[in-house]
Amino acid sequence: MNKNAIPQTSMIESILLQLPLRLFLGAVFVFAAYNKIPAIQSFAEAIKGFQVIDSETHPELIIIGAFVIPWFELLAGLMLILGLRARSAALGIGALLGVFIYALLYVIFTDVSADCSCFGDENFICGSSVGWCQVIRNIVFLIPATYLVLRGPGRVSIDQIMSKPDQNPDSYAYHPESLSNPVDADASRA
């Protein structure tokens, strides 16, 4: 059994669902990273503003998060777009969305006034201040992430190309034309 096997889906599902969802979710996270990476100081300040992590006792966690999260978003987003280890990337994005939702709810319920900085200085769908809009947006993003974890990247992906043909269920199908190949027949006679 192929441990690297990806779920086999139809070409229609791959093209109509998996590919657009991968491109959309991947692009969203690449866009988020693109706006954060040049402004790490601002992103660190935004994390501090959420007050989920105590900046007095654990400033190093804020700084590590400020450097790692944007690069994680960029890598996971690119891998999702390419369909390379796409289920892992979707799982990572789903986990990150979970963390973001927790942080947003923390800000909302503790009545802290914080900026989302979800896309750096840019806004996407919601405004800049933390509110329920960002929570709902992230929950909506969780849907395609979960779908991609469960169903895989589809046929139009590097994962599909790299899956070994002898371990692909399709390769076990009966192909009568290969038996009637005259070249093969000549070779066997010789």
């Binding site: 690069w71 994680f72 280890r85 990572g92």
Partner: peptide
Amino acid sequence: ITSGLLSIVGAAFLFG
């Protein structure tokens, strides 16, 4: 899937 995820986390730490 988990090993792939850990690879992404590791790469993000490296780039960071």
